[in-house]
């Protein structure tokens, strides 16, 4: 039933479109004439903005760059091949169940940090997600909350610090974990300790006894993280990732 329907739609779309592509009836519209230009020096916007963007506090640059290359190589030779194998040997529903379960545990720091930032609505939102997914989604294996229209949000302690005006401090490239800052690294540690303290669903306690669970968590994290070193295909990727990271965090803190 659906296929012929699709074809019909496509055919009607094509019919509507077909006489248009017959060419040569269109004249060049001179798009650049819509713009106003300036050759005054203070208008060298691209150069000014780019030079400004390269001024980032990065006192450990030498070390950071070495760690960037280390992460890149580790990714290529160990991490990504492991993720590929993981994807091959686990059926899709199991994999997304695992991702959901770990995402569910991350609601705990999100709630705590929303409360710390006095974002009551967001804390309620995440609490509802945590409860729905833990109870109806069987320990978070199914993300029923999203299906109910409660999309995931994320707040971490780095964001809480930023919310109260703590500057990012020096840029850091963390081994295995990637781009961060002094402030956000402190946040990572705090969130980790907090999760352990709250011990939701007894996972943090259990994983201490079953280190294999840590391994699974690490693989799942890489599986769900889209960043690929080399993706920007530029000799200046380090600078670009650094700027994007700092700016993305600013946006996350302000939302």
């Amino acid at each position: 039933m659906r296929r012929p329907m699709n074809r019909l739609l496509l055919a009607s779309a094509l019919l509507l479109a077909l006489p248009l592509a017959s060419a040569q009836q269109y004249e060049f519209t001179r798009p650049l004439e819509r713009l106003t230009f300036s050759d005054e020096l203070e208008q060298y916007q691209f150069e000014r903005a780019t030079l400004g963007a390269l001024k980032v506090s990065d006192p450990l640059e030498q070390l950071n760059r070495r760690i960037y290359h280390f992460n890149y190589k580790f990714d290529q030779h160990v991490f990504l091949p492991t993720v590929r194998t993981y994807r091959k040997v686990t059926p899709r529903p199991l994999r997304s169940g695992i991702s959901n379960a770990y995402a569910n545990l991350k609601e705990v720091p999100t709630i705590a940090n929303s409360l710390l930032q006095l974002k009551g609505k967001r804390a309620m939102h995440s609490t509802a997600r945590l409860l729905f997914n833990s109870i109806f989604g069987v320990a978070g294996l199914w993300d029923v909350a999203s299906k109910m229209g409660l999309e995931p949000v994320k707040e971490d302690f780095g964001q809480t610090l930023g919310h109260y005006g703590v500057p990012p401090g020096p840029y850091l490239m963390l081994p295995f974990l990637g781009p961060s800052s002094l402030r956000d690294t402190g946040g990572l540690v705090t969130d980790f300790l907090l999760e352990r303290d709250i011990n939701w669903l007894d996972y943090p306690e259990t994983s201490r006894r079953q280190p294999a669970l840590y391994g699974l968590e690490v693989i799942d994290t890489r599986h769900t993280t889209e960043l690929r070193y080399g993706q920007l295909n530029s000799p200046f990727e380090y600078e670009k990732i650094r700027y994007i990271y700092i700016k993305a965090r600013e946006l996350q803190i302000r939302d």
Binding site: L32, L35, T36, F37, S38, Q43, Q45
Partner: peptide, 8 residues
């Protein structure tokens, strides 16, 4: 190249 010389 010229588009980098627009007036903002």
């Amino acid at each position: 190249d010229r588009m980098a010389r627009v007036r903002l």
